[in-house]
Design a binder for these strands. Sequence first.
DNA 1: TTTACATTTCGCTGTATGGCGAAATAAAGA
DNA 2: TCTTTATTTCGCCATACAGCGAAATGTAAA
Lengths: 121, 121
Amino acid sequence: MREFMNITKALADENRVRALLALRKGELCVCQITELFGLAPSTISKHLSILFQAGLVESRKEGRWIYYQLPGKNAPVVVREALDWIQKALADNPQVLADNQQLKKILKQDPAELCQRQCKK
Amino acid sequence: MREFMNITKALADENRVRALLALRKGELCVCQITELFGLAPSTISKHLSILFQAGLVESRKEGRWIYYQLPGKNAPVVVREALDWIQKALADNPQVLADNQQLKKILKQDPAELCQRQCKK
DNA sequence: TTTACATTTCGCTGTATGGCGAAATAAAGA
DNA sequence: TCTTTATTTCGCCATACAGCGAAATGTAAA
């Protein structure tokens, strides 16, 4: 039950749901998500930590960057069904579509430059 | 998005999830759920109100009693899928099984007597 | 080594939420 | 009508949580 509630609590925040949907396009580093949402890096980090604890994202370290991504086929059924559920419910949501557009612009930018700008703020 | 977040926030409380699973057996009045969880009637009422706002339960008034039940076939897809999800995830959960046992005992009792005891507390 | 930098952790603040009991509401019964 | 009673609403308290900035951590570059 604890595990399941970790998932529902993780899904009970709009920014975390938006983050999960943004990750559909592939892995993202913290500063890319930070840029997308316009929140403080520490805030984004905390959100990702909560998603990670719930098993809703995986993480991969590459040098100084940490990339987050949606879990693979080996993820628990309850997790995959949760992700399918929000995907289906919000695929054509205006906010989510806007995030997708914004994300495209972010992905065109050099991640290194992006992160530098984030850190200077 | 607001609608969807109403659902995820409603599911982010363990007692509300337990209530939804208890309702699988059929409609229940407030005092029956109160008896099941051992919380104050006002607390249960608030929880049911939140589930109702999210569209996760329907209600039916019969005299002084108000019966709550899971939504029917006409419920939005996103709601039905949410209910299927938690049902599948927690069908064999110890807490949920214990609730089922307890619920059987409660359903054997006369609702009128049950409610009277609740209100005297 | 030092410095730079991406991310996390920590401490704090304001707001949201679960819990209760008391009062309000609404419907049945005396 | 006047009680009784099932439920809701309201006001309160304690806790949980999202947000930030500053400090800490760990890794790469100089």
